[in-house]
Design a protein around this nucleic acid. Structure first.
Lengths: 212, 212
DNA sequence: CAGGTCGGTGTACAGTTGTACACAGACTAG
DNA sequence: CTAGTCTGTGTACAACTGTACACCGACCTG
């Protein structure tokens, strides 16, 4: 029967699970994952330690869930950005704009990803790298749609996508470091970021023609 | 009086201090710094926990010492690389070669740096970033010596140096991930790395002229 | 060669960790 | 309506943590 109660059992379970994820993310702002304890998470979430096991077998599983969560918003972002493959300048400016805004709106998620990308916990690290690699591949196929790159080899596209992804990660990091309410500092980051991406994208044809 | 004993007291102190640093570095291969305990370090070093305090006040101080150690070799590397500012292709190839070799020979140090660059421990993170920024600045002044960059603005040079440093960091990361004894995998990394750097360096003039 | 300094040891303790287990109450399915 | 399934609780414990303190023995200095 369809429950009339405001929250079904399954829904409440989902809520405490989310509370655990949120609590962990909050704590991960000032701790790295390998130093994060099960008890600390449950304490922050306001539940008893043993509840943790109702939702995750090990801490690593919670970490993987956080990675999932983070990259879902990241993909959302990039889907917006690849709207108009005609004008480079426009794509660059709006991509940077979208990236910066999303990072600001998801500080905790992006901070987590940026930090744990090189973290000591192998399982977490590898999961993140896999996602980033995938992200780069998607970007590469998007790049292939640009007129002057249509004839590039896939490896060259991958290399270029890698450069862009690297740049984006470091842009995100700078945004994260900027004081939360400093609009002109963020503006400066955006300006430098656009310059960096322009450097990569506009410099590319010259590089390409120089090896032909 | 000049001691005749093979090891003076001060020398032996230096040795156990080094043993602590080495032990920490070894453990940091599979743990992140914030999860590393004083007791674990002393255990690995083969001394009693309280000995730690004879050398460092807090764990963070040990971390800072490790950063010092790591960047000393990094600077050594770059000093070699900036020998001949005439031929780009040669500079790129030999820079990559030197970078890859140094990373291979100092896996633990570079792994530590790469991982803790985004780590949760603010003090460690900031110290590393300061060193990397300095590294980028030095690179920027080196770039200024290249003929066609002589007229660039300092900001443009810094942006480009930033791109290169980013690329180098990600190259180092890939080398660290490659199986230790896989020469052809490393060869492949080197090839891609050279392509990336060429992309940045050779593409730059086109970028520069397009905004004048 | 005497005394002090100092690096390393051993013991001790309170706090925290992960996890096992029995239990309670609420939702759900029959 | 009832029996059963779940989610969250409370208690318990062994293992580990950082660090305080007293101590020892070897080196160094006078």
């Amino acid at each position: 029967m369809n429950t009339r109660a405001p929250e079904s059992r399954a829904e409440r379970k989902r809520q405490t699970r989310q509370a655990l994820l949120d609590a962990a993310l909050r704590l991960l702002e000032e701790q790295s994952f390998s130093g994060l304890g099960l008890r600390a998470v449950t304490r922050e979430a306001g539940v008893v330690p043993t509840t943790f096991y109702r939702h995750f077998e090990r801490m690593e599983d919670l970490g993987l869930a956080l990675i999932d969560e983070s990259f879902r918003t990241l993909r959302e972002m990039i889907r917006d950005a690849r709207s108009d493959p005609a004008n480079y300048e426009h794509v660059i400016a709006s991509s940077v704009e979208i990236l910066v805004r999303h990072v600001q709106q998801n500080r905790l998620h992006f901070g987590f990803i940026a930090r744990e990308r090189f973290s000591g916990v192998a399982e977490i690290r590898h999961a993140i790298r896999a996602e980033i690699r995938l992200f780069g591949s998607e970007l590469a196929t998007d790049l292939a749609r640009f007129p002057y790159m249509r004839e590039w080899g896939t490896e060259d596209l991958q290399v270029m996508a890698g450069l862009i992804v690297n740049a984006m990660v470091s842009i995100a990091e700078e945004v994260l470091d900027a004081p939360a309410g400093g609009p002109e500092a963020v503006q400066e980051i955006r300006r430098i970021a656009e310059k960096q991406l322009r450097m990569i994208v506009i410099g590319a044809p010259a590089w390409q023609s120089s090896r032909r």
